[in-house]
Simulated scan of single mutants.
Amino acid sequence: MHAARNGVAILDLPGFTKIEVKGPGAFAYLDNLLCTKLPKVGRISLVYALLPDGKVLSEFTVVRVAEDSFYLVGAASSEWHDLDVLEMALPTDGSVTLKNVTKDYGSLILVGPRSREVLSQVTTSALDNAAFPWLSMRMIDTAVGPVRALRVNYVGELGWELHASNEQMVALYDAIWKAGENHQIVDMGIYAVDSLRLDKCYRGWKGDLEIGFSPFDASLDRFVDLTKPAFVGRDALIAEKAAGSKWRFVPMTLDEDGDADAPFCASVFSGEKRIGIATSGGWSFTLNKSVALAYVRPEFEAAGTKLEIEIFGERKKATVGQEPLFDPRNERLRS
């Protein structure tokens, strides 16, 4: 974690679900399925598919490769779920094709303030902000051949996801490691990622996000485009926006460290009233605090609100924070 925040770290993460969506009807198909505005060519968006009642069904990172070609990336555990979601919505006129390429590609995550310096020794492709801004995709040249590079990550730092064929992966990893040795590059594990994502309040699929809550409940308002004329769940979200959401998603930090972090589905209290549930909890080595992410009733969402979380039978005082807890202007991601 120290390397990811202060130097450079690498993670071999082969499990992403990866699906190609192509065809003359691809844009219209995804635009109707997703509540989020689709990105321009070469750009990346985090998007959500909903149920007709407006609850969150799936989450994808969408890369627009060309006008009628998209690359969807999802959670490792969601492969068959997401394929079912996409296949059930396919038009019957043959204007859209799906290809599951999950087994064909691996991914290396390179992150940290020194990640550009390291990656620049592996490719001659331009990596500066003008040529390769945050939330964009480029095909970069490497000694092992072209690699799809996504300037996005789940830890909130300057960095790239490198999506390469299985045949390229070992040599690509070796090249990055060699380039990073002078910068004290280290391997990073998924537990480190989980701690780092809590700093940024990034949601986890099927933990923080699931079909019991809408994107408004999950405080994902910025990912909903109600100006679109149609998408699955739109009518339900319009009604919810008018009436007000039943829940809001907030970060909290424990006032005292204690002996344990908030477990999944820990109850959140205001006095003797149960007013929410924690869906993630863990220690932030960046903030040096125990962080919990939780759904609470809207009247308790304001930063500074004092609440309690029941952690293994004991009430622990906690304070609602402002999302994100770390680097609120995303300056590190944009650097």
Rank of each mutant, 00 (worst) to 15 (best):
F132E: 05
S219P: 04
P133E: 06
V111K: 08
K200S: 03
I211E: 11
P146G: 08
E210F: 11
D128V: 07
S219F: 06
D187R: 13
A126K: 14
S219I: 03
E167I: 02
T102Q: 08
L172D: 01
S136Y: 03
L158I: 11
V152H: 08
S195G: 15
G106D: 15
L127F: 08
A179V: 03
V147S: 07
L162D: 11
K103Y: 03
L172F: 07
P215R: 11
E210T: 04
R203C: 03
I211M: 08
I211V: 03
A126F: 00
N182L: 10
R138T: 06
Y173T: 04
G106N: 15
G189H: 09
E161A: 07
Q121P: 02
G112L: 10
A179N: 05
L172T: 10
T124R: 12
S120C: 01
E181D: 07
G156C: 11
R197E: 04
L127A: 11
G156S: 06
A126G: 01
A164D: 03
Q121N: 12
R197H: 02
R197L: 09
D187S: 12
A175S: 15
W134Q: 11
Y154A: 12
L127R: 14
N182V: 09
V152M: 05
I190Q: 09
V122F: 02
L198G: 01
G145D: 09
Q184H: 15
M139I: 15
D221Q: 13
L198M: 15
V101M: 08
G212E: 06
N129G: 04
N153Y: 05
D221K: 12
Q168K: 09
A179H: 03
E181V: 05
Q168S: 07
S214Y: 03
M139L: 14
L196F: 02
V193M: 11
A164T: 09
G212V: 00
E161K: 10
S214F: 01
W134K: 12
A171G: 05
Q168R: 10
S219N: 13
E167Y: 01
Q121L: 14
W160L: 00
N182A: 14
G159T: 10
L220A: 06
A192F: 02
E157A: 02
K206H: 12
A171S: 15
D128W: 01
D104N: 13
G106Q: 10
Q121H: 09
E181T: 10
A192P: 00
D194T: 05
N182H: 13
R197S: 04
G156I: 08
P146L: 09
E181K: 15
R197V: 02
V170P: 00
H163C: 06
S125P: 13
N129L: 02
D187L: 11
L110D: 04
D104R: 11
V147F: 00
D128H: 10
F132Y: 14
D221H: 13
W205S: 00
